[in-house]
Amino acid sequence: MEDLANKYIRFDWAMKRLLRDKANFGVLEGFLTTLLNEEIKINKLLESESNQEDEFDKQNRVDLLAENDKGELFLIEVQNNSEYAYFQRMLFGTSKLVTEYINRGKGYGLIRKIYSINIVYFNLGNGTDVVYHGKTEFRGIHNGELLNLSPFQKQKFNVDAVSDLYPEYYILKVNDFNKWSKVPLEQWIYFLNTGNIPADATAPGLSEAREKLQLVRMSKAELNAYYHHLDNVVILRDNIVTARGEGRLEGHAEGLEEGRAEGRAEGRAEGRAEGRAESKLEDAKNLKCLGVSMDIIAKATGLSVEEIAKL
């Protein structure tokens, strides 16, 4: 029988089953505190149209919506499958939350602050970093000046910058990060990718994860469901690797064919150009034999007087 000691539940499965329990909020709070570099206390979990699952999503996606003690919203999503329009998906999720959590007729000043946190297990976009952060700022197109809040707005909304009023996005590309580090955020990314928590982990929330997310705490039925989920994840990852390999091969073949086509096209173009040049020389010869002046032949053929004289 498999030794379950010192083995931990993957974060996406924990989000489905365990982290929704208030007793386990410490894991989520530690993760958010590490990512945002400020202490986060979760008040409650919420449901929204944005984080409802369909049958396909149950295999490759899980998300969770939390509210902290300041009323800010945290949409945490784990995506196992490659999705080319994922950036737009992030935008859709925050846009839905903006409208869902303000009642019609209420002032815009009551719109919630939203953090969209995306843990992706595929190569999203073209970049080499592991963590990306996006926020909204307004800068002058002439002088590059950052547009700031007025003193009244700062007091009214209790924030320091315009970007504090808009959704912020975090993307954690964890799939290839497997090096243990002393940096708390990198410790979390290591856990998100490998499922391991070394004994010297110091990042907030990982000590709680070590206690709450042990496989030995699961029943036999829960373990079976969990292993089924892991099998689906492996299949999804294999599909991504296969698609990458096939894409490279197809791209190579297409490149060769395009090269051949370009060669044929260039050859035809060069042939036509050479044909036109020879035709001009022949026309110039005939006109010269008829006694037409050099200047007129030059205008008719585009050849120089010197070229015509050599014929």
Rank of each mutant, 00 (worst) to 15 (best):
I114A: 00
A300V: 08
I76C: 03
L185S: 11
L311V: 08
K220A: 15
L249F: 00
A300M: 07
Y121H: 09
Q52F: 14
A253F: 10
E254F: 01
R61F: 00
L19F: 10
A265F: 06
N68Y: 03
A261Y: 11
N143S: 06
H228V: 05
A298L: 03
K310F: 02
L124Y: 02
V174R: 06
E67R: 07
A309I: 05
L46I: 11
I240H: 03
N143K: 09
N158L: 09
F157L: 14
Y86E: 02
K299M: 08
F157K: 10
Q79N: 04
R217Q: 09
F56S: 08
G134M: 10
P151W: 04
D231W: 07
K41G: 02
T34S: 10
G302H: 03
P184H: 01
E258N: 09
K135V: 09
M218K: 13
L236G: 07
Y108M: 11
L303G: 08
S219D: 06
L35T: 03
I235Y: 00
G291P: 02
T33A: 12
H133L: 06
E38K: 15
W188V: 11
F87I: 14
T99W: 11
N80M: 15
Y226A: 09
G71K: 07
K113G: 02
L230N: 12
G134K: 02
